Computed example of a mutant assay.
Amino acid sequence: MRSRHHDIADDLRHQITTGRIKPGERLLSEAALADRYKVSTVTLRSALAVLQGEGIVEKIHGKGNFVRRRPRKTVYIGGWGMLDPWTAGEAALRLTVRTTTVQAHRHLATLLKVPLDSPLAEIFCVSHEGASPHGLARIYIPPDLAPAAVQDGDSPWRETATRFAVLSTARATVRETACARPPTPEEASALRLRSSAPVLAITRVATDTSGRVIEAALLAFPGDHVDAVFTTHPPTDERQTHE
């Protein structure tokens, strides 16, 4: 026999998809909805949990349940790692940047090939459209390579950082690893995600011509907010190059 909470979820979903309840609109309180459907609040919350799991409804602590706005997607361009200005520019992005010095824990020490607990310049960036987070970046640079402007948080470098681009001006080889995974607690908090919602995680490492790692970045985007584009080129035949 079909559960009552599924019937309630179906009715609310129909109201949302037909536009009777608009994107961004707050639903009635759980008590009011339970009274309307003549069920307990436990059953009502089970119905809302179905819609929350589908990404249709978002529960904001202390405010209530809201119909989620359709996410505006941006495009992450691999290689030099930046947000595509055409898609990112469509949104009125609010950018938050924090710079500090941290000690390299084991993962960072491995990425940057530096001793454990070595000092690193960290640039932490979060981009928002209104109240909706679009992505976050944690960029790490050895202090002797980080321009003073990065360490001081001056605006030109802040703007570059918020595009999530490789900060170094030196020629570099960039290696990126992308995967889908559950968010960490820090990512879930910063991006306002459910712990079960996937993120697109990109680990980017840039090395100079001598092989030294000059920058490492840990990027995370809500899985339904971004497309990643990577362009590859066929290897050049050195024999042809010298002919």
Rank of each mutant, 00 (worst) to 15 (best):
R2C: 00
S3Y: 12
S3M: 09
R4C: 01
H5S: 13
H5V: 04
H6D: 12
R13Y: 03
H14W: 05
I21E: 00
P23I: 08
E25P: 00
S29N: 00
A34C: 05
A34F: 00
D35I: 10
R36D: 05
V39M: 04
T41L: 08
T43V: 15
R45I: 06
A47D: 00
A49K: 15
I56T: 06
E58R: 15
K59Y: 13
G64K: 06
F66M: 05
F66N: 03
R68C: 07
P71M: 11
K73S: 05
K73P: 00
G81T: 06
L83A: 05
A88V: 03
G89R: 03
A91Y: 00
A92D: 12
R94V: 15
T101R: 14
A104E: 07
A104K: 09
R106V: 08
H107N: 04
L112K: 07
S118W: 03
A121H: 11
C125L: 01
C125E: 13
S127L: 14
S127R: 15
H128Q: 10
E129S: 11
G130F: 12
S132I: 14
G135R: 04
A137I: 06
I139V: 08
I139Y: 06
L145C: 01
A149V: 04
A149L: 08
G153H: 01
D154A: 04
T162G: 06
A165G: 14
T169E: 13
E176V: 07
A178F: 14
R181Q: 13
P185G: 08
E186H: 09
E186A: 15
A197F: 13
A206T: 10
L218H: 12
H225A: 13
V229A: 02
H233P: 02
E238A: 14
H242N: 09
E243N: 08
E243Q: 07
